[in-house]
Amino acid sequence: MAGMDAIEVRGLRKTYRGHDAVRGIDLSVTRGEVFALLGPNGAGKTTTVEILEGHRKRSGGEVSVLGEDPGAAGRAWRARIGVVLQDAEDAADLTVTEMVRHIAGFYPDPRPVEEVIDLVGLTEKRKSKIRALSGGQRRRVDVALGMVGRPELLFLDEPTTGFDPAARRQFWDLIRTLAAEGTTILLTTHYLEEAEALADRLAVLAGGLIVAEGTPATLGGRAAAGAKVSWRHGGVQHTEQVTDPTELIRKLVAEEADLTTLTVTRPTLEDTYLQLIGVN
């Protein structure tokens, strides 16, 4: 299995009643990688992920997930993937422990229930009914259920929607822990800082096509886009666009310019993203 990609997609298409939701995308995710799929609503993110999970049939193209076609794979394959749902409201009358234990029972080698609940930070809530949890806590149950089977590949579809900033940081740590254990993670998100914080590589989907792919630092030519250097000197605002700010700053220092207001800015991932999806 060594060297084989976790996910391999060639020319994936999906048509709903004449409407093209996914219009031929190529994607490869290496084992152990955290890969983020970004894109506006309706870009085809969820459709793509659902096809990879085996929840939806594709209209065309080739898909291989952990070496198998998700449209035809069986139970043994399902035991190797984990799915974190986006907006489930099931099992409201069960407690956290009851539900995690129940789902764990379907896997050949599940993680210990207490360990999983502890990892998602719900130990204090383990005896609460799922109905009584806050939205963020509810999502953490979803993550617990997605990881309890020790998946080799975990799908997370917009996992932190509705989280407060502290909960989001905690969640990121959890994802990093799983990634450090070698779990391959495919993540969709609306939050650019989330993709930047977690992803080794990312792709931007717009209108059913991949418009850019790269690392958070290089996406959409971000690395080559250069930097904007601004400073005030003698009451006058100066701004210069340069590929490499080193030379300019060295020059300014040599000229003994006043650098108390110096700023160096690169396009943020958000700037790049908005440009890619055609908003700017």
Partner: peptide
Amino acid sequence: DGTLKRLHGTPIT
């Protein structure tokens, strides 16, 4: 409510 989708993500038949 997502029960079926949840279970379909696991190896249950």
